[in-house]
Design a protein around this nucleic acid. Structure first.
Lengths: 200, 200, 200, 200
DNA sequence: CATGAATGAGACTTCATTCAT
DNA sequence: CATGAATGAAGTCTCATTCAT
C-alpha cells in the first residue's frame, strides 16, 4: 500500500530532527523540553519516542549528521592538492556553505561543545582534532611557503581563523542581505588583508 | 574587633558568585544545579539562599557586575577623543583586559545570549545595542577618515571584529603562554593587517 | 468504542479535586502536602501536575466551583420575588443544601478567608460583597416591612445570621442524625424565634 | 543590678507572644514563618530562640494562656449558682469579654482546632469537653426548668450558641462601633428572642 | 503513529532551627 | 540579648520517559 515506507519514515524523522534542531539552537539543549519540540512539531511529547530513543539521541543525530556532511566537504577540499592559500580559501567557502545548510546544527555545536567530554559524543573530540589538524596544517604550510605571515603565533592565528568563521552561525540567517558565498568572500578578504588601509 | 562587617559580607557574596560563575562557565547555566555550586563552595545547597534569592539572581549579579565594569572601561576609551584606529585598538585591548578579569562572566555572557529576551535581563539587550553603536560607529569614522577600507560591508565587518574578540573568552586561560596584552596585540595585528603576506 | 473522552477527563479531574478538597478540609491548605493528596488519590505526587498547574490552582478550582454553584442557587432565590422573611428562609435552606453538597469546599472557604487579599482569589472578595448585599438587604427589607425587629444593629444581625449558618460546615457530616433540610428548619426556628420561652 | 529580671524577661516574652499571635491570627499558623514574626518584632529570626524553644511552643503558650484565663472567668460564672438563663447570659458576656482581651488567641483557636489531635495540645480537647459540658448542661437545665424551648435538638442548639458567640472573634475589632458588652447584649437578645417580630 | 495518563528521579526553594561570636 | 551564617529536612514542581489503548 505505502510506496516507500522506509523513505517516508526517514522523511518524517528528518522533519522532526529539523524541528528539534531549531528549538535547540534557539534555547539551548538543556533549556529545551521534549514537550517544546513536540509542540513545535504538532504532536504530543510521548509520540516523539516512537521515532527516537531519547532527547539525547535527537541531539546525537543532529550533530553527527552535520559533521558527516561537513567532513565530506572538507575532505574533498583537502584532497584537491591546492596550495595553502587556496586551501584556506576553499575551507572558508566550504564552511560558510555548511553554515548555510546546517545553521541550527552549527549553532548547537558551538554552544554544546562541552559534550565532547561524554563517551557518546566522543566523535566531537575526534572531529575537533581533525579540524585543528586541517586548519593549523594549512596555516603552517602557508607560513613555510611564504603565503602567510611568519610573525604570528600559529595557535592564536588558528583560533582567530576558526572562531571568526564559525561564530557567524550565531547570527547568520539564510535569505539575508548577502548569500553565503558573498559572506565568505568578504570574510576572506578581511582575514587575509585586514581591515586597515595602511599596512606596516 | 571585627574589622569591616559590611566588607566581610560583601566578600562572602563575591566568593560565592565567583564560584557560581566558574561552574556556570564550565557546564552552562541550565546544566548546572544549585547543589553543584554549593558543593564547589563547600556548603549545602539551601545555604546559598541565605545570600541569594535564586539561582537566576546569581546569574543576574554575575552578568550585570561584569557589564558594569566593562562599560566603565569602554566609556573611558570612548571619552578619550582618540582617532578611529586608536579607538579600535584601545577597545580591543580593553576587551582582552576584561576577558582576563572576568573570564567566566564573559563565557557565560556568550553562551546565554538568549536571555536578552527576558525582561529581567533586558539590560543585556541595552548593552548589546550600546556595544554595536560603539564599535560600528568607530568603524564608520575610520572609513570616513580613510583609516579603514571602504570596500567592506560594515555590518559584516562589525560582526567580524566583535566575534573575533569575544569568542576568545571560550578558550582563554589566565596564566597561559601569552598574557592578555600580548594576545590583544596579535589579534589587532591580524585584524588590521590580515594574515596574508601579499596584499592586493 | 470510547464513550465520552471529554467527560472521562473531566471526571478524573473532578475525582482528584474531590480528593484534594477532602484533605484540605481536614488538615488545612497549608498543612496539606501535595504528596498527601496524591496518596489519597492513589497516584504519585508528580502525576497531579498532569491534571493541574499547581497546588494553588486545585484550591482555586475547588473554591470557584463551589461559589459558582452557590450563586446559581442564591440568584434563583433572590430573583423569586419573595417577601423578606421567605427570602431569608429560602437563603438559609439553600445554604444548608450547599453545605450538604460542598461540605469540604465550604469548610475550606471558611478557613482560608484570608486568601481574599490575593489577586488570584479576588473573586472571594467579590462574592463576600455580593453575599453581604443579599443578606443585609433582605434584613433591611424585613425591618422596613415590619417582619424583623427594628431594635437591632443590622450589621451585627447580619454577622450573626451569616456566621450561624456557615460555621455549621465545620461540624456537619452528611448522613448524620439530621439531614440538611431538618437542620435548616431548626436553625431557622432558633434564628427567628430565639431559644427562650419567654419573650420580652 | 537590674530590679526585676524575671519580670522584665516575662514582659519581653509577652510582647513577643502578642506579636506572634497577631501574625498567626492574620495568616494562619502554618502560613506564618518564624521570620515574619521576627520581622514584626524588629529582631532576627534566630533571636526568637533565645526566648522560645520553637514556633510550636509559641503557639502553645498563646493558646494555653488564653484558655487559662477563659476558664478562670467561666469557672467563676459556673460557681455562682445562677439559674440557667442567667448562667447563659453570663457565659455569653464573659465570652465576649475574652474575645475583647484575647482576640488573636481566639481567632487562632478557632482556626487551628485540628491541633486537638496532637498530644501536646491535648488540653484543647479537654477544654472543648468541659466547654460542651458547661454550655450544654446549662441548656439542659434551662429546658428542664422551662426557661428554654423544649422542641429543639439540644446538640444543634448547643452548636448554634457556641458558634454564634465564638465566630465573632473573626471579625471583632476592639475600638469599633460597639464595645464588647454592647455586642454581648445584642447577641443575647437575638439568641434568646430571635430576630423575628412575630413568634409562633 | 499518536494519545493520555502516569512514573520517578531530581530540580529549585523554603524554613525551623542551631550556634559561634 | 541579638546577629549572621549555616544546616538539613521537606515541600512544590519539572521533565524525560514509558506504556496500554
Amino acid at each position: 500500500m505505502t510506496s516507500q515506507p522506509r523513505t517516508a519514515a526517514a522523511t518524517r524523522r528528518d522533519e522532526l530532527l529539523a524541528t528539534a534542531a531549531q528549538v535547540f539552537a534557539r534555547q539551548g539543549y538543556d533549556a529545551t523540553t521534549v514537550r517544546e519540540i513536540a509542540d513545535a512539531a504538532g504532536i504530543l511529547a510521548g509520540s516523539l519516542y516512537y521515532h527516537f530513543d531519547s532527547k539525547e539521541s535527537m541531539l546525537d543525530e543532529i550533530l553527527s549528521g552535520f559533521l558527516n556532511e561537513l567532513w565530506t566537504g572538507y575532505d574533498a577540499v583537502l584532497a584537491a592538492g591546492l596550495g595553502p592559500r587556496e586551501t584556506l580559501e576553499a575551507l572558508v567557502v566550504e564552511s560558510f556553505r555548511e553554515i548555510d545548510r546546517h545553521r541550527d546544527a552549527v549553532a548547537i555545536y558551538q554552544r554544546e561543545r562541552h559534550l565532547a567530554g561524554q563517551p557518546r559524543f566522543g566523535y566531537l573530540t575526534d572531529s575537533m582534532n581533525r579540524f585543528e589538524a586541517a586548519w593549523q596544517g594549512t596555516l603552517e604550510r602557508g607560513v613555510a611557503e611564504g603565503a602567510f605571515r611568519a610573525d604570528l603565533d600559529l595557535r592564536l592565528a588558528y583560533r582567530f581563523v576558526r572562531d571568526t568563521v564559525w561564530v557567524a552561525a550565531s547570527w547568520y540567517r539564510p535569505g539575508g542581505r548577502h548569500d553565503a558565498g558573498e559572506i565568505a568572500r568578504q570574510y576572506l578578504s578581511m582575514l587575509l588583508d585586514g581591515i586597515s588601509t595602511t599596512h606596516q
